[in-house]
C-alpha cells in the first residue's frame, strides 16, 4: 500500500489535483462532471465502472475520477482512495428515501484513513426541482457538524441542469486544496 503512494507521489506533476467523485447511484455525478467540462449532458448512461476527466481549472489541472454508485460497484471505491486531494460527495436532494443509505456510505468513507487528508465538498444536487431538501436540511440529516474537527468541508446546493452552484463548490474545493498542498509557492 505504502509503495503505491510513494510512486504516485514521485510521478505527480505540479499543479495537479486528484479529485474523487462519489455518492449513491442516480445522484448526478456524471452529469456534474460533464457539465463543468462544458459537454453535452443529454444522454448519459448509469456508470458501470468509472471515468476520468482531466479538466483545466484556473491554473490547476484536475484529474476527476467519477466512479459509479451502484451497490455492486461501491466496493471498488476503495481502489481510488490513494492520493486523493479532494473528495466530492454528491447527494440527490430529491431522494428522501435513500438519505439514510447516503449517510451510511458517507460515514464509512470518512472513516477511511487514506482519505483523512482530503478536502470534502458535499454537493446537494438537483436544487432545480421544486420542494427538494435544502443544503441546510441535508447538512442536518447527514450530521455534518459532528464531523472530525480536522476535516475541511463545505456543503453547496447545486444543479447540474442549470449549472448553478457548481463553480461555487469547485472554487472552494480547489482553493482549499491549493492552500494545503501548494502553500509553499
Amino acid at each position: 500500500m505504502g509503495l503505491l503512494s510513494i510512486i504516485r507521489k514521485i510521478k505527480r506533476k505540479e499543479k495537479e489535483m486528484r479529485i474523487l467523485m462519489v455518492g449513491l447511484d442516480n445522484s448526478g455525478k456524471t452529469t456534474i462532471v460533464l457539465k463543468i467540462n462544458g459537454e453535452d449532458t443529454s444522454v448519459i448512461s448509469p456508470t458501470l465502472g468509472f471515468n476520468i476527466k482531466t479538466i483545466t481549472y484556473q491554473k490547476y489541472t484536475l484529474n476527476i475520477w467519477d466512479v459509479g454508485g451502484q451497490k455492486t460497484i461501491r466496493s471498488y471505491w476503495r481502489n481510488y482512495f490513494e492520493q486523493t486531494d479532494g473528495l466530492v460527495w454528491v447527494v440527490d436532494s430529491s431522494d428522501l428515501r435513500r438519505l439514510d443509505d447516503c449517510k451510511l456510505e458517507l460515514d464509512n468513507l470518512l472513516k477511511e484513513e487514506r482519505l483523512s487528508g482530503a478536502s470534502l465538498l458535499i454537493l446537494a444536487n438537483k436544487q432545480d426541482i421544486k420542494g427538494v431538501l435544502t443544503p441546510e436540511e441535508i447538512a442536518k440529516v447527514l450530521n455534518l457538524e459532528a464531523m472530525d474537527k480536522s476535516r475541511h468541508w463545505q456543503i453547496v446546493g447545486c444543479s447540474a441542469y442549470t449549472g448553478e452552484g457548481l463553480l461555487e463548490g469547485f472554487d472552494w474545493l480547489v482553493q482549499d486544496i491549493a492552500s494545503r498542498i501548494y502553500m509553499l509557492d
Binding site: 430529491s94 439514510d100 449517510k103 472513516k111 420542494g131 427538494v132 431538501l133 442536518k140 440529516v141 450530521n143
Partner: peptide, 23 residues
Amino acid sequence: DDSAIPQPKQLSTLNSDFPTHHS
C-alpha cells in the same frame, strides 16, 4: 475490525431528525 463495527446509534437518530417533506 473498527470499520466492520456497525454504528447503530447514528442510524436510529436519523429518522427523528428527518425533515418532514412531502414529495
